[in-house]
Computed example of a mutant assay.
Amino acid sequence: MESLAIKGEQSISLFSRLMLNGKRDLPIRNSEMGLLILADRGNGTVTPAMAANYFHVSKPMVTAMVRSLAQKGYLEKIPSEKDRRSFVLRPTRAGGLLVKSTYRDYYSSMQLLQQKMGEDRFSSLIALIDQANLILEEDRQNG
Protein backbone atom coordinates (compact mmCIF):
# COMPACT_ATOMS: atom_id res chain seq x y z
CA MET A 1 0.00 0.00 0.00
CA GLU A 2 2.82 2.40 0.86
CA SER A 3 4.49 1.98 -2.53
CA LEU A 4 1.20 2.93 -4.22
CA ALA A 5 1.00 6.01 -1.95
CA ILE A 6 4.57 6.94 -2.91
CA LYS A 7 3.77 6.47 -6.60
CA GLY A 8 0.66 8.60 -6.12
CA GLU A 9 2.66 11.38 -4.46
CA GLN A 10 5.22 11.30 -7.26
CA SER A 11 2.53 11.33 -9.96
CA ILE A 12 0.64 14.20 -8.35
CA SER A 13 3.85 16.19 -7.81
CA LEU A 14 4.82 15.77 -11.46
CA PHE A 15 1.29 16.66 -12.58
CA SER A 16 1.37 19.83 -10.47
CA ARG A 17 4.76 20.86 -11.85
CA LEU A 18 3.63 20.24 -15.43
CA MET A 19 0.42 22.20 -14.88
CA LEU A 20 2.40 25.20 -13.65
CA ASN A 21 5.10 24.87 -16.32
CA GLY A 22 5.13 27.86 -18.63
CA LYS A 23 3.43 30.08 -16.09
CA ARG A 24 6.66 31.03 -14.34
CA ASP A 25 7.06 34.30 -16.19
CA LEU A 26 4.03 35.84 -14.50
CA PRO A 27 4.74 39.11 -12.67
CA ILE A 28 2.70 37.76 -9.74
CA ARG A 29 2.45 34.47 -7.87
CA ASN A 30 0.15 31.75 -9.21
CA SER A 31 -2.11 32.09 -6.16
CA GLU A 32 -2.40 35.83 -6.81
CA MET A 33 -3.24 35.10 -10.45
CA GLY A 34 -6.04 32.82 -9.29
CA LEU A 35 -7.45 35.61 -7.11
CA LEU A 36 -7.13 38.12 -9.94
CA ILE A 37 -8.99 35.78 -12.32
CA LEU A 38 -11.73 35.24 -9.73
CA ALA A 39 -12.11 39.00 -9.22
CA ASP A 40 -12.18 39.56 -12.98
CA ARG A 41 -14.80 36.88 -13.58
CA GLY A 42 -16.84 37.94 -10.53
CA ASN A 43 -18.06 41.19 -12.13
CA GLY A 44 -17.57 43.30 -9.02
CA THR A 45 -19.19 40.87 -6.57
CA VAL A 46 -16.13 39.15 -5.09
CA THR A 47 -15.25 40.02 -1.50
CA PRO A 48 -12.17 38.79 0.38
CA ALA A 49 -14.39 36.47 2.46
CA MET A 50 -15.91 34.98 -0.69
CA ALA A 51 -12.44 34.48 -2.16
CA ALA A 52 -11.20 32.78 1.01
CA ASN A 53 -14.20 30.45 0.91
CA TYR A 54 -13.74 29.77 -2.82
CA PHE A 55 -10.05 28.89 -2.47
CA HIS A 56 -10.47 27.15 0.93
CA VAL A 57 -7.86 29.38 2.54
CA SER A 58 -7.91 31.77 5.49
CA LYS A 59 -9.13 35.34 5.12
CA PRO A 60 -5.73 36.69 6.28
CA MET A 61 -4.13 34.80 3.39
CA VAL A 62 -6.50 36.49 0.93
CA THR A 63 -5.88 39.83 2.64
CA ALA A 64 -2.15 39.42 2.03
CA MET A 65 -2.75 38.58 -1.64
CA VAL A 66 -5.08 41.58 -2.02
CA ARG A 67 -2.47 43.86 -0.45
CA SER A 68 0.25 42.53 -2.76
CA LEU A 69 -1.90 42.81 -5.90
CA ALA A 70 -2.99 46.33 -4.95
CA GLN A 71 0.61 47.43 -4.35
CA LYS A 72 1.57 46.04 -7.76
CA GLY A 73 -1.30 47.94 -9.39
CA TYR A 74 -3.36 44.91 -10.46
CA LEU A 75 -6.30 45.03 -8.02
CA GLU A 76 -8.35 47.67 -6.28
CA LYS A 77 -10.71 47.54 -3.31
CA ILE A 78 -14.09 49.18 -3.89
CA PRO A 79 -16.34 49.91 -0.88
CA SER A 80 -19.33 47.57 -0.89
CA GLU A 81 -22.68 49.20 -1.62
CA LYS A 82 -24.39 46.62 0.62
CA ASP A 83 -22.05 46.81 3.61
CA ARG A 84 -19.75 49.81 4.03
CA ARG A 85 -17.49 47.78 6.37
CA SER A 86 -16.63 45.48 3.49
CA PHE A 87 -15.33 45.93 -0.02
CA VAL A 88 -15.36 44.14 -3.35
CA LEU A 89 -12.32 43.28 -5.40
CA ARG A 90 -11.92 44.64 -8.90
CA PRO A 91 -8.98 44.33 -11.27
CA THR A 92 -7.40 47.58 -12.39
CA ARG A 93 -6.90 48.14 -16.10
CA ALA A 94 -3.45 46.53 -15.77
CA GLY A 95 -4.96 43.61 -13.86
CA GLY A 96 -7.65 43.10 -16.48
CA LEU A 97 -5.06 43.13 -19.24
CA LEU A 98 -2.93 40.60 -17.36
CA VAL A 99 -5.93 38.28 -16.93
CA LYS A 100 -6.86 38.65 -20.58
CA SER A 101 -3.34 37.94 -21.80
CA THR A 102 -2.77 34.90 -19.58
CA TYR A 103 -6.21 33.36 -19.08
CA ARG A 104 -6.00 31.17 -22.15
CA ASP A 105 -2.49 29.99 -21.28
CA TYR A 106 -3.49 29.49 -17.66
CA TYR A 107 -6.15 26.97 -18.61
CA SER A 108 -4.64 25.54 -21.80
CA SER A 109 -3.38 22.45 -19.96
CA MET A 110 -6.91 21.57 -18.85
CA GLN A 111 -8.22 22.14 -22.36
CA LEU A 112 -5.48 19.89 -23.74
CA LEU A 113 -6.31 17.14 -21.25
CA GLN A 114 -10.01 17.38 -22.02
CA GLN A 115 -9.35 17.19 -25.76
CA LYS A 116 -6.82 14.32 -25.62
CA MET A 117 -8.56 12.26 -22.91
CA GLY A 118 -12.08 12.69 -24.23
CA GLU A 119 -15.11 13.93 -22.31
CA ASP A 120 -15.80 10.73 -20.34
CA ARG A 121 -12.26 10.15 -19.09
CA PHE A 122 -11.71 13.84 -18.39
CA SER A 123 -14.99 13.99 -16.43
CA SER A 124 -13.86 10.94 -14.45
CA LEU A 125 -10.54 12.62 -13.69
CA ILE A 126 -12.26 15.75 -12.42
CA ALA A 127 -14.74 13.71 -10.35
CA LEU A 128 -11.88 11.77 -8.73
CA ILE A 129 -9.96 14.96 -8.00
CA ASP A 130 -13.10 16.49 -6.47
CA GLN A 131 -13.55 13.39 -4.30
CA ALA A 132 -9.90 13.50 -3.22
CA ASN A 133 -10.23 17.20 -2.35
CA LEU A 134 -13.27 16.48 -0.19
CA ILE A 135 -11.46 13.71 1.67
CA LEU A 136 -8.41 15.90 2.29
CA GLU A 137 -10.54 18.89 3.35
CA GLU A 138 -12.48 16.74 5.83
CA ASP A 139 -9.25 15.35 7.24
CA ARG A 140 -7.80 18.84 7.53
CA GLN A 141 -10.88 20.08 9.40
CA ASN A 142 -10.93 17.08 11.72
CA GLY A 143 -7.20 16.93 12.26
Rank of each mutant, 00 (worst) to 15 (best):
M19D: 13
D120W: 11
V88Q: 02
V88P: 00
L134S: 14
L89Y: 01
I12A: 12
V99K: 06
L69A: 04
F122E: 07
A70C: 10
Y106Q: 05
E81C: 00
L14D: 12
L20F: 05
L113H: 04
V46I: 15
K59F: 12
L97W: 01
D105R: 15
E138Y: 14
L69W: 13
L128E: 15
D130V: 06
V66E: 13
Y74P: 02
S68H: 06
A51I: 07
V88M: 04
M50F: 15
S3H: 05
L89G: 03
L125T: 00
G8H: 07
M33S: 07
A94D: 00
R24Q: 10
Q71Y: 08
Y74K: 03
M33V: 05
V99F: 11
L112P: 02
S68E: 01
I129N: 08
G44R: 14
I135A: 08
L4E: 14
S11Y: 14
A94Y: 02
R17M: 07
I6G: 04
E9Y: 04
I78Q: 13
P48D: 06
D83R: 03
L69H: 10
L136Y: 05
M117V: 09
Q131V: 13
S31K: 14
L89D: 00
I78D: 09
L36P: 01
Y74M: 01
Y54G: 00
K82I: 07
L98N: 01
Y74C: 00
M110T: 15
Q114K: 14
D25V: 00
I129H: 06
Y106E: 11
E137A: 14
I126V: 15
G96F: 07
S123D: 15
I6K: 09
N133W: 05
P60F: 03
V88S: 00
S123Y: 08
